[in-house]
């Protein structure tokens, strides 16, 4: 039998299933928390840090990712405070400056309120969200790709750099990758990257607190669309 707990998210008292994450609970109840590395049927690693929320404990708030935080009785969560919005915007700015060449990244930057990018653009192909690694390992149990190296050298690779026999070429890693969605105006050449911001009209106000089924969610694979 399912056990329920009461949590307060942005002041709304939510009757949530015990054992689910704060992010899943909030998204299910229509509270929008932007997220990128989270996919509903995969385990969470908390790599993109975009789904940060304030968790208020004894009057002190600590910042943590909502995808790795499970609901508990009496929990108080704030998802849309000034502090969170600012941190989220800075993170999204780092992300879009690193890899602007994807509609998913452009959309999440827009959703998080990035209006200018103060860093020089780099045209990286991978943001190490780990979606492909997790879908390969957890859904297909193939373990054909994994993280290799650490720090700046961390990347996704086949074992020893050669495609193994147990890779069935199912293509799920490509389907789930946020970097395979090209920007609306086509791929950006190195040195010509820009912040798109064309879908700004999709947003209800500057940063919506509740889910409005915006088209942006489709781009970055929001949990509501899966």
């Amino acid at each position: 039998m399912l056990q329920y707990v009461n949590v307060s998210i942005d002041g709304a008292i939510i009757h949530a299933v015990k054992g689910t994450s704060v992010l899943d609970t909030a998204v299910e109840y229509g509270i929008c928390i932007p997220h990128l590395c989270h996919v509903p049927y995969l385990s969470d690693i908390g790599a993109c840090r975009l789904c940060i929320v304030e968790h208020v404990v004894n009057g002190r708030s600590e910042i943590t990712t909502s995808c790795t935080l499970n609901v508990e009785e009496g929990m108080v969560i704030l998802t849309n405070t000034d502090r969170i919005r600012k941190l989220r915007r800075n993170l999204a700015e780092l992300l879009v400056a690193q890899a602007p060449n994807s509609r998913a990244i452009q959309d999440i930057a827009l959703r998080c309120g990035v209006t200018e990018v103060r860093y020089p653009f780099r045209n990286d192909d991978c943001i190490l969200c780990g979606r492909c690694v997790r879908v390969c390992t957890e859904v297909w149990q193939a373990r054909a790709i994994g993280f290799v190296g650490r720090g700046k050298d961390r990347h996704i690779e086949y074992p020893f750099g050669v495609r193994p026999d147990f890779c069935k070429q199912c293509g799920n890693c490509i389907q789930i990758c946020p970097m395979t969605i090209t920007p609306c105006d086509g791929p950006m050449k190195p040195g010509e990257e820009y912040l798109c911001r064309k879908c700004e009209s999709q947003l209800m106000d500057e940063t919506p607190g509740s889910c409005s089924w915006c088209k942006l969610g489709e781009g970055f694979g929001c949990g509501r669309y899966v």
Binding site: C48, R49, L94, L95, Q98, Y119, I127, G151, K152, R154
Partner: peptide, 21 residues
């Protein structure tokens, strides 16, 4: 610190790199 970073999360991997830049 950039050398020591494991590279899993965005703020440490990219943030420290940008600070260094």
């Amino acid at each position: 610190l950039q050398d020591e970073s494991c590279g899993k999360c965005l703020p440490c991997r990219v943030g420290v790199d940008r600070m260094l830049e």
